[in-house]
Design a protein around this nucleic acid. Sequence first.
DNA 1: TTTTTTAACTAACACTTGTTAGTTTTGTAT
DNA 2: ATACAAAACTAACAAGTGTTAGTTAAAAAA
Lengths: 191, 191
Amino acid sequence: MAQTDGRKGEIIQMASKLFRERGYSAVSMRDLAAGIGVKAASLYNHISSKQEILSSIIISIAERFTEGMNAIVSKKVSVKNKLEEMIDHHIQVMIDNPDGIACLNNDWVHLKEPELTYFLDMRNGYEENLRKILKEGIKSKEIKQVNVEVMLFSMLSTLRTLHLLHEKKKGIKTDNLKNEVKQILLTGIMN
Amino acid sequence: MAQTDGRKGEIIQMASKLFRERGYSAVSMRDLAAGIGVKAASLYNHISSKQEILSSIIISIAERFTEGMNAIVSKKVSVKNKLEEMIDHHIQVMIDNPDGIACLNNDWVHLKEPELTYFLDMRNGYEENLRKILKEGIKSKEIKQVNVEVMLFSMLSTLRTLHLLHEKKKGIKTDNLKNEVKQILLTGIMN
DNA sequence: TTTTTTAACTAACACTTGTTAGTTTTGTAT
DNA sequence: ATACAAAACTAACAAGTGTTAGTTAAAAAA
């Protein structure tokens, strides 16, 4: 359940926005408080630390990615189908919280244990599942015989930074974005 | 001319490494000094500010990207050829300074004027030139009729974050990396 | 109305930040 | 050996950091 209402939700939302713009370390609790229209000390009636804010933002999104991917890998459908569903899901999570995604991408390094390990395990699991799908596709000849790691990396780097495209092209409809990304990631660009 | 020797070069090199690991804002001058084995104040015999270090790292790389791209766009070769040369060049710049690339990617937001504008102009120019190549390819039917912006974005996000792959797969030979990235970015993955 | 709870406030803490001033050491040329 | 420049050092600055304690105002429950 994403936290978006109440004062705590407001804090997390504003923090996501500011962390995205300047990065976790460059945003002070006073900046964050000012963004909401309150004094820094007042934030501590709702949250317990700056670190907790970062965790809230990142972990909830990472869990959503993980759940979606887990639901997809074991499906009895073609590899192409799995990849399409995975791209759709990834983009949907991004659309629902672009600031949070940016924050996850840039600031996960600043997580402290045990959340850091928890996050990295989820991230590795996600990658591992996608790798599994790609290898399955190579075996079944649905996918070209190219380096799995490079292929995996290319897909993930496009998906992970898609909030930047979404930010610049605000007009684009969600379904169009999903379709165009799928086409390019799966079928390439050259004729 | 890249700065790699002398005390100043050593400072910039260590700064690139630390900025990459923790981000500009999270690295203090004392951290940086300790990494070199010196006191913070001593750094100021070689550099004038923390900000100058950041500029040195980012601007020199951005200029290299710009020069390479400018040399490629106006060539009288096929679009495919241009794209291949551009990918090769981009990867070569990354190989020569992966820490600096990471720093450019993550910390350009912390540049101050006038360097910020100078950097953004170069970045926009680079994108604009690549867009030009892609549009030329679409017109000549060398490239599929897909959304230029999404295509552009996908290529750039893969290239820009390639230092992460390079870091994880240290063993990979430069030429292999170049070839595999070209294959995937240009011809896609599906059979 | 009175009581209790929620969430704002001010003030302060211990510490870290980038940077400067002034001094001492180190290495090189005369 | 002497003089000079380069680069290290210590000490300190003003400002900013996350966070806590204690207090007051507003809202909800009794």
